[in-house]
Design a protein around this nucleic acid. Structure first.
Lengths: 212, 212
DNA sequence: TCTTGATTCAAACGAACGTTTGAATTATTC
DNA sequence: GAATAATTCAAACGTTCGTTTGAATCAAGA
């Protein structure tokens, strides 16, 4: 069943990704998308039934494999740790590496995707809520559990707060990297995934370990 | 010159703040704004000349006093420190307290404003760029300098990275607090400004102090 | 080859948008 | 209190939007 290989659908998903990242959800028209994808205007409603469904499909196409990779990495680190808790730095690596790898592997598409996450989080429009909540709640639960095993002196609430903080570091850093490039006058750039990962993990690990 | 006291302009600014925070920039129409403000549709173009200018005015109305308060606090702490560097926690307090105080003082309006910052950061539309860059670059420069005095072992670039991280913690935490409330199943709430401030400062200070 | 289903296409639909207009109304000044 | 400026108002402008339609085109299976 080569549903996703269908040339028209794929072209639409890619064009949507690029244009929405550049212009935002509402400001990107179906006419612009179909023109960029070189397909007919009616193709969107034919293949996806609506603009909202197209955008959801576009976000899901990237989100799903990334969240699977995150949980797979966490699984792997948990197995490697045996009965012991997973080292804090490994938990953070499982959380952040899949997205940063996407940036490194396919620079333009990866960056676009990060902008889209920031957009989706900020966008108050209702149709994105289910996706954001589903995406966040399940993943957060798993990582919250691992974190409490590794840092047992953290209370349940404190672990939630700090995981939220760590997420903030990561999302803000990668989604608004142009602000950093601007304020640092080009001295700081998000190019090498491993270097950025190391900096972020270093910062977050210290914050997470901080005594109350 | 009671420009800002003009009832129509003020009603428009307030209604814009509320509606844009709830719906986003593009999804909020002038018809919805003028209806909520109980003024005529043409009042926007008469008083602000365009929708974009209205939104910029609305953002500036909140941003300006907050950035002034941030720099004033930093000044105050620098004076108090005399010739010594400002304590790290004081730098962070100067950076974060003015916004959190707005949340505490006027809960609804403060929260709306934080959503607006996240929206403005994520929004790729061009007309916001000058405001965001102006807002960030000047303030960041002052705080970057103070940070390097307090943590002299931090390289110039490292200080930029970590200040960016700290900003991420703060903005993400307050702008997307509903995600935290959701994933923690209501156990974590952004209500008491002082408690949130303490948690954020504690996390960020540890991250900033972390050895390379 | 003919038929059937899937896909593409040009064209149009109604709705909503930001903005403009010019007259009506209100406030200010002399 | 008349004259002048500032503001409000209802109505309309032209544009763009997401979606729908029905015919044209394509791809196989019988």
């Amino acid at each position: 069943m080569p549903e996703d290989l269908h040339a028209t659908k794929l072209a639409l998903l890619k064009a949507t990704e690029r244009l929405v990242a550049a212009k935002g959800f509402e400001a990107t028209s179906l006419r612009a998308i179909t023109a960029a994808a070189k397909v007919n205007l009616a193709a969107v409603n034919y293949h996806f039934s609506s603009k909202d469904a197209l955008i959801l499909a576009m976000l899901n196409r990237r989100l799903k494999p990334i969240n699977e990779a995150r949980l797979a990495l966490l699984d792997q680190f948990e197995k490697a740790a045996g009965s012991k808790p997973v080292p804090l730095e490994k938990i953070l690596e499982a959380l952040f590496r899949p997205i940063l790898d996407l940036v490194a592997r396919r620079s333009k598409e990866g960056r676009d995707f990060l902008r889209l996450i920031a957009l989706a989080l900020a966008e108050p429009s209702a149709f994105l809520k289910p996706l954001v909540e589903k995406e966040f709640s399940e993943k957060t639960r798993r990582f919250h559990r691992a974190l409490r095993r590794t840092l047992p002196n953290l209370s349940d609430a404190e672990a939630h707060w700090r995981l939220h903080f760590a997420h903030g570091v990561f999302i803000h850093t990668v989604a608004h990297s142009q602000v950093l490039e601007c304020t640092s006058q080009g001295r700081c750039r998000i190019t090498k995934a491993d270097e950025v990962l190391r900096r972020i993990i270093n910062f977050c690990a210290a914050g997470l370990r901080s005594p109350a």
